[in-house]
Design a protein around this nucleic acid. Structure first.
Length: 449
RNA sequence: GUGGCUAUAGCUCAGGUGGUAGAGCAUCGCGUUGUGGUCGCGAGGGUCGCGGGUUCAAGUCCCGUUAGCCACCCCA
């Protein structure tokens, strides 16, 4: 028989690992729901035209064909590579049935035909939240979305996260003020600051016909960061000494609007979850449809993993315009794989079962089943031993699966007994009234030792 | 898509210069005939990723191929 080997980029978890992934998803859902975000699920496929139309990501799209496709003219379909494109289509399609501003969350798998690595998969979960308005959307929702994500991440057993935020308006105003024409091009270069360093970025900028003084000003701006409003003075000082354009009124208005939004964002997030947000004027984001706030979130001590939660403000979700929004996306699989791989957390057990009812012999299996049903009737996950093996074997069966309690039916009128196999304590018990400790009722995730 | 590294038991790996495959862990059994975990003894388990070549002889050398890992690109 051919050996079964893992397929690169398509992660699969053991039951205990899936407990962790499920707990993460459940915790996210709870926080999103608590803030009034409605859940939706979209189909896995979109038309290729729609998927490819968005960007140059076309080569990453997995397309679908039937094995026996006989040349019929079906619309070509592809698997979605993010949750924003399907959401945009959904909003367009259901716009008459949705109430705006529309707040939704969506936790689904997405597929990208990229070269896999640690934290980069071909099939993975994303958890998205977006708020979309009709015609307009107040700026304070930029803060709300970031606050919800900060709280969602804080609800997970993680070392802590740092959300680095910036504002495209601020950056654009500044760039215009120092005479940059190709703002998107300059942003793409600044985005590589970590990779190629200040000198590398400077060289790229000069290559793009950016004057040297302007390149230096851009790099100075990218150096600014602060966990509070103190970055404003630094930006203003830099602005005062570097503007080269004759008429800077428009650019300055744009800069000031961005500054105010960024101040509100940093202060708002840090008020909700102290120590989470940092205004970092080097954060650019490669995607060019962002027009205001941009976010990138890193797991403290695991910055090598890359961003685990990013997003931003955009002018319109749909091509025709009119649906401004702001959203963020958590890379659930990336996060979970690191939590598991680095031993940050573990599940208390791999099965839901809290109690294994032992079977004395096959003739009395019915008695064991009755005990199990009594416990199940009171919400205690229970299974019955598969065979009437020696009790040592039955206890071992429970131990291997992490089942904390083994129940021994009493024989010949004797009372039943329940054993905590971790401590070895065994006490008389009645299936009609016995309760496990609350922390043993269901599998939980706990910090690993 | 580009480059580097790797592929031997269920898992992690060892196998100078070619000479009939090994360890630890895991699994199963017994010690311990109805209360596990420790300990001791024992057992099962491998067409050495696949295909070809060189050779009396290939896990080992050569070519090809497939897959995995890592980096780049890009991103969650």
């Amino acid at each position: 028989m051919a050996r079964v080997r893992p397929l690169s980029g398509y992660p699969e978890w053991t039951p205990a690992q899936r407990v962790v992934e499920s707990a993460v998803i459940d915790a996210l859902k709870e926080v999103f729901t608590l803030h009034g975000f409605a859940e939706i699920e979209t189909r896995a496929v979109e038309t290729v035209e729609r998927l490819a139309g968005k960007s140059e990501a076309a080569k990453e799209i997995y397309t679908l064909t039937r094995l026996n496709a006989d040349g019929d003219a079906d619309a070509r379909l592809g698997l979605h590579f993010d949750l924003t494109v399907p959401f945009a289509r959904y909003v367009e399609e259901f716009q008459n049935e949705l109430a705006f501003p529309f707040k939704r969350f969506q936790i689904q798998k997405v597929w990208r035909g990229e070269r896999p690595q640690e934290g980069r998969y071909r099939e993975f979960y994303q958890a998205d939240i977006d708020v979309v308005g009709r015609q307009s959307l107040p700026a304070h929702l930029d803060v709300e979305v970031a606050v919800v994500m900060a709280r969602a991440l804080a609800a997970l057993p993680l070392p802590g996260v740092t959300m680095r935020v910036n504002n495209r308006r601020l950056v654009e105003g500044f760039y215009r003020g120092v005479g940059i024409d190709d703002i998107a091009g300059a942003l793409r270069s600044v985005d590589k600051l970590d990779k190629i360093g200040p000198d590398g970025v400077r060289a790229e900028l000069v290559e793009q016909q950016v004057p040297e003084t302007a390149a230096d000003a851009i790099l100075e701006l990218a150096r600014i960061s602060a966990p509070d409003a103190s970055f404003v003075n630094a930006v203003e000082d830099l602005w005062a000494t570097t503007t080269t354009v004759a008429d800077v009124a428009d650019a300055e208005a744009q800069l000031r609007e961005g500054l105010a939004q960024l101040v509100a964002l940093v202060q708002g997030v840090n008020a909700a979850v102290p120590g989470t947000a940092i205004a970092d004027l080097r954060i650019a984001r490669g995607l060019d449809y962002y027009t205001g706030s941009v976010y990138e979130t890193f797991l403290d001590g695991h910055e090598d993993l890359g961003s685990i939660c990013s997003g931003g403000r955009y002018d319109s979700l749909v091509a025709g315009g009119g649906f401004p929004g702001v959203g963020m996306s958590i890379g659930v699989s990336r996060l979970v794989s690191r939590m598991l791989g680095a031993g940050l957390v573990e599940a208390t057990r791999a099965v839901p079962t809290a109690v294994l009812v032992a079977v004395t012999d096959e003739e009395t299996r019915a008695a064991s089943t009755a005990i199990a049903d009594a416990l199940r009737g009171r919400g205690i996950a229970t299974e019955v031993a598969p065979t009437a093996a020696k009790f040592g074997k039955q206890i071992q069966h429970a131990d291997r699966r992490g089942i904390p309690f083994v129940w021994f039916p009493g024989s010949e009128g004797a009372s039943d007994e329940v054993k905590d196999i971790r401590s070895g304590d065994q006490v008389p018990a009645d299936a009609a009234t016995w309760e496990p400790p609350a922390e043993d009722l269901s599998p939980r995730i706990v910090p690993a030792d």
